[in-house]
C-alpha cells in the first residue's frame, strides 16, 4: 500500500470511528433507564409524553400583605433557567428545600431586583397547572405545595428558615399546601 493509501485508510477509519461514536448513544433508547451524556448524547429532549397539565417547582416571594410575586431563577444560581430549574427540582427531591429558600432569601437581601424589594418571605413551591387554562390567562395553580420558606432579613442579618408551623400561620401561605 502506498503512503497516501495508508493515510486514506487511517483517515477513513478515524472518521468511521467518530461517526460510530456519535451514533452509539441511540442504544440508550432501548435501555430501561436511558442515561444521556455529552458530547455523545441520546437527545431525549421533547420525547416525554405530556398531559394537559404539568407541575413546576419554582420560587415565590410574598410581601408583608401576602401579595405573591414570582421570583427570578437567577436568585438561586447561574447557568440559565433550565439548569437552575433542574437543580431546584433535585434540591427539593433531596429534601434540601430549606437550603434553596435560604440562598434565595440571602440573594434577595443582598441584591434585590427593583420589583422584588418589598418581598419579605421566600417560598420554594411546586405548583400544578393546566396548560390550557394558564395560557388562557388563568394564572393561579390548580394546586400548590410549599416545600420551605425563609424570611428575608431586611436588617442585613442572615435569612431565617422558618419551620412549617410558622409558615402555615403566615397570611402569605393562603392557597398553598405544605409538602407532606
Amino acid at each position: 500500500m502506498t503512503p497516501d493509501g495508508r493515510d486514506k485508510l487511517m483517515a477513513l477509519t478515524a472518521s468511521a470511528g467518530l461517526l460510530a461514536a456519535v451514533l452509539t448513544p441511540i442504544r440508550q433508547h432501548w435501555c430501561e433507564a436511558p442515561r444521556d451524556g455529552f458530547p455523545l448524547s441520546c437527545y431525549p429532549m421533547f420525547t416525554a409524553k405530556r398531559r394537559r397539565h404539568g407541575s413546576v417547582t419554582y420560587l415565590l416571594g410574598t410581601d408583608a400583605n401576602g401579595e405573591r410575586r414570582l421570583l427570578h431563577y437567577s436568585y438561586l444560581g447561574g447557568g440559565g433557567l433550565n439548569q437552575v430549574r433542574r437543580q431546584l427540582r433535585r434540591i427539593v427531591a433531596e429534601g434540601r428545600a430549606d437550603e434553596a429558600a435560604a440562598i434565595v432569601a440571602a440573594a434577595l437581601e443582598a441584591t434585590p431586583r427593583r420589583r422584588d424589594r418589598y418581598v419579605t418571605r421566600v417560598h420554594v413551591v411546586t405548583g400544578r397547572y393546566r396548560y390550557g387554562d394558564f395560557f388562557a390567562g388563568q394564572r393561579d395553580p390548580a394546586s400548590e405545595v410549599v416545600h420551605s420558606t425563609a424570611a428575608v432579613d431586611k436588617r442585613g442579618t442572615l435569612p431565617r428558615s422558618l419551620d412549617r408551623q410558622q409558615h402555615d400561620e403566615a397570611p402569605a401561605n393562603e392557597g398553598m399546601q405544605p409538602s407532606g
Binding site: H29, T47, R50, R52, V56
Partner: peptide, 30 residues
Amino acid sequence: KGPLGWSWADGESLRSQIAADGLRKELLGS
C-alpha cells in the same frame, strides 16, 4: 423510541412541550 412513537408527529406532543416549556419560563421569571 420515546413513549409516543410515531404519534409524536401528530403535533399534540409538540404543543404540550411548548406549553410545558412556556409554563416553566413564566414561573421561573423569564
